[in-house]
Nucleic acid binder design. Structure first.
Lengths: 161, 161
DNA sequence: TTAAAATTTAAAGTTAACTTTAAGAAAGGA
DNA sequence: TCCTTTCTTAAAGTTAACTTTAAATTTTAA
């Protein structure tokens, strides 16, 4: 089964010019061409595209993905470098997930804050809620976010962010 | 306690020109100026910067952060819109974390794959490992990644990505 | 008081990853 | 065959988020 660039665009959601751009950048070196120079994608090319999407999601730049593909083409002599690349990227994604969990904590707090502000009619009313009336799960989040005292009571005239 | 832009740069790790850029874009409307026009940062400005970093990590663009700050300045009449903004962003971060977990699965598989290729001396040797010799935790990951058959045995002359 | 270091601005430059445009060639249906 | 759609390329344009430059203050330390 062969696919045109339009088919692949539809199946992957990537615009055809993006696919041509990836090809031009050396990310799709396995795509064959018909007589007239028209690209004929196979299932394996779609798999490469899925891997590319995944590597992009992991934070790899296009030139780094090309580097990996070049290593792949070179064969078994590059196993160590490919291994290193995946370990580096795995650690990077693990760090990114931890960072996002921290961000999620802040956003969860802010959602509670504005839910409550919406109920009470003002931001100040939320800031004046006594510690013992704050839900435990929110308190827990606040504790984790010690460096943000933007979440505490307003002191004097300083505005809370 | 007041800080110059150099102090803030050192404390936050953000280059001074980046701080000026944020200020120019309206992200730091609370920073005061001395007689000569020199910025004097307060603790609350540092807190705003921490919030900005967090919102950026959540995927918000600078113009969206500015929008939030404008809403903040407008006061209690914008509580609903701010609430909506945080809910939207929270959901976006939750999706991003799920996406990254999928990416992490692939990377974990690839790390195992190249660890094993390194041991066995070739990629093909790994592809020829019988199903029942593959560690359970790797099998589990493979099952989750059904859409990537780039991880299975080589069929005919098709290259695995 | 004076020299060096840090700050200011506006404006131009950079980078990555596309996206758009234009003009032409190939494929597919009537 | 002819017409419409889809494909091709190269080149220019776009966007976000800085980063760099240059020239002019202002601050600080000696």
């Amino acid at each position: 089964m062969l696919y045109t660039i339009g088919d692949v665009s539809e199946r992957t959601g990537l615009p055809a010019p993006t696919l041509r751009y990836y090809d031009k950048e050396g990310l799709l070196p396995f795509v064959n061409r018909g007589n007239g120079g028209i690209r004929k994608f196979q299932e394996t090319d779609l798999e490469w595209l899925r891997l590319i999407e995944c590597l992009k999601a992991s934070g790899l730049q296009i030139k780094d993905i090309k580097r990996y593909i070049d290593l792949f083409i070179q064969g078994d002599s590059t196993i160590e470098e490919r291994r290193q690349l995946f370990y580096t990227q795995k650690e990077s994604v693990e760090r990114e997930i931890e960072l996002l969990k921290g961000t999620l904590n802040l956003l969860t707090y802010k959602c509670w804050f504005y839910d409550t502000a919406s109920e009470l009619g003002s931001v100040e009313a939320v800031q004046n809620i006594p510690e013992n009336k704050i839900p435990p799960h929110i308190k827990k989040i606040k504790a984790k976010m010690a460096r943000f005292h933007c979440c505490g009571k307003k002191k004097k005239s300083a505005q809370a962010s």
